[in-house]
């Protein structure tokens, strides 16, 4: 069984937000007190109790009609997940067999490093400071059910299935660019965009922070390479030069001589 993904198609989305409610219902998340800020969009961002939401993007046009794009947002479930890379706690952020990034709150140590590493600003923390985010309804998918958001979507704007099949489907439907096909090890939340990602409020080329990559590729290995190297050099010195002794004692001449000879 291959990796599974969620395909988001804003061209099919009608902004009804059934997904937002279904998510809260399945994941037993409370609603928060909000206010209208002159937009349909609410809450203003993902929160520890809002795992997905619809962004409403109004695009003005000097000639003709405006465009109103509905972009469903949630954890991207990166193939190469910065949050998982940086997370210091064993088993706090995990990848399911399907490729979803899930959280074990009992193992989260509230360090919030994931939040600074994530290129999409997904990680949010609950009242206990534990990471709280979309887990692609792993408790549903494990039983063969689609995530709650995809299940409730009336128009097929959210589709869950085999990643390769979804990509093929979107390409067949004429979407030139599948956002997330290759970036960050391939995203688990794919987008079928008609136009430039920027129009939909997305980064053209999402990437992990460079310092994180350096840390991952250099500093982290250096910690054991450096330790090992230092130990090895000490050992080499011990063997090659030997301890620095003031006056050879009577019980040690042979060894000293040996060292001398070898030296």
């Amino acid at each position: 069984m291959g990796r599974k993904s969620l395909l988001v198609s804003p061209e099919l989305c009608i902004g009804c937000r059934g997904c937002q409610t279904a998510c809260k219902e399945w994941n037993q998340l409370p609603g928060s007190k909000t206010e209208n800020r002159g937009s349909f969009e609410n809450p203003p961002e993902l929160t520890a109790t809002t795992f997905n939401r619809v962004r409403y993007v109004e695009v003005a046009s000097s000639s003709g009609d405006p465009r109103w794009l509905f972009v469903s947002q949630r954890c991207m479930h990166c193939g190469d997940a910065a949050c998982m890379n940086i997370c210091p706690s064993t088993g706090a952020i995990n990848r399911t067999a399907d490729g979803a990034i899930t959280v074990d709150k009992t193992k989260c140590i509230e360090c919030k490093l994931c939040a600074s590493a994530c290129p999409f600003g997904t990680p949010k923390f609950d009242a206990q400071n534990k990471l709280s985010k979309c887990g692609m309804c792993a408790d549903r998918t494990a039983s063969g059910l689609p995530p709650a958001c995809a299940k409730t979507c009336p128009t097929g704007a959210l589709r869950y299935g085999e990643r390769e099949e979804l990509i093929a489907l979107a390409k067949k439907a004429g979407y030139a660019k599948i956002y997330g096909e290759n970036d960050l090890g391939g995203l688990g939340t794919l987008y079928a965009f008609r136009d430039e990602p920027k129009l939909y409020g997305m980064d053209e080329k999402p990437a992990m922070p460079e310092s994180l990559i350096f840390w991952q590729n250099v500093l982290k290995p250096l910690s054991y390479l450096g330790l090992g190297g230092a130990l090895a050099l000490s050992l080499v010195h011990l063997v090659a030069v030997g301890p620095k002794k003031d006056e050879p004692k009577n019980d040690e001449p042979k060894k000293d001589e040996e060292v001398n000879k070898n030296g």
């Binding site: 937002q20 409370p30 609603g31 206010e35 209208n36 002159g38």
Partner: peptide
């Protein structure tokens, strides 16, 4: 239902940019 209220919490009025300019109204006012 807090879930529904969270998404659409308050009475709103949709107005064009032109009318907003005329009436000195900003989005969210």
């Amino acid at each position: 239902l807090p879930w529904q209220m969270e998404m659409m919490p308050q009475q709103f009025i949709e107005i064009s940019r032109e009318l907003a300019r005329e009436k000195h109204i900003q989005s969210g006012d």
